[in-house]
Each structure stands twice: as structure tokens, then as C-alpha cells.
């Protein structure tokens, strides 16, 4: 049976990482920026799982790392959403362009 080569998966994860980075830099809505960050973290998860399965199938280091990244990303999202709610309370907006009280 033909399997998908590792390079295809790496291409996917790299593309996903930079799509996430592009989203983070261009989007101005905080929720969308948070989603872009999740995209970047998920691409790293794909990396870890793929390396684990293709190159080092004997040990489960990569899989465990991916599990920890998912958990911590959830914690990060929880804190970030709390901050966004507070940002909405003080600024009446979650657009980053409206939060410009401090410059240079």
C-alpha cells in the first residue's frame, strides 16, 4: 500500500503555519487573531505527530508533546478570551486598531 510521504505532510504543516502567521499579521479582530494562533499551534502538532510516526515510531515523545500543546493552547485561549472580554468592557470594541492609547 502506498503511504503519503513525510514531505507532503511537512508541506501541509509549513503552509498551515505561515497561513496562521499571515492571518495574525493582517487580521485586526482579536478573535480572528486568536484563531490564527491556534492554526500555528496545530501545524506544530502535525509536525510532531508526523515526525513521531514516520521517523521515530518506537517512542511516543512526539505524540505526548502534541497532547501537551493542545492542553496548553486551551489554557492560553481561556486567558486570552478573558482578556478580550475585558478589552471589550473598556474599549467597546475588540478591534486592535481601536486599542491605541499607547504609542512609541
Amino acid at each position: 500500500m502506498n503511504t503519503v510521504p513525510l514531505s507532503h505532510i511537512l508541506f501541509l504543516s509549513t503552509a498551515l503555519f505561515f497561513i496562521g502567521m499571515y492571518g495574525l499579521f493582517t487580521r485586526r479582530n482579536m478573535i480572528t487573531m486568536l484563531m490564527a494562533i491556534e492554526l500555528m499551534l496545530n501545524s506544530v502538532n502535525i509536525n510532531f505527530v508526523a515526525f513521531n510516526k514516520y521517523l521515530y515510531p518506537g517512542k511516543l515523545d512526539g505524540l505526548f508533546f502534541a497532547l501537551f500543546i493542545i492542553t496548553i493552547a486551551a489554557a492560553e485561549a481561556a486567558v486570552a478570551i478573558a482578556i478580550i472580554i475585558n478589552l471589550y468592557r473598556t474599549h467597546r470594541s475588540i478591534d486592535v486598531d481601536d486599542a491605541t492609547d499607547m504609542k512609541y
Binding site: M30, I37, E76, A80, I83, L87, T90, H91, M102
Partner: peptide, 17 residues
């Protein structure tokens, strides 16, 4: 404080990145 929430937003985004 408006500045405090703005600062927290900037910190969480940049540290996540």
C-alpha cells in the same frame, strides 16, 4: 483601566506568537 487591558491584549498575542 483602558491601558491595562490594552497591554494585556498585546502581551498575550505576542507571547503566543
Amino acid at each position: 483601566s483602558k491601558r491595562s487591558s490594552e497591554a494585556a491584549m498585546k502581551m498575550i498575542v505576542s507571547s503566543a506568537f
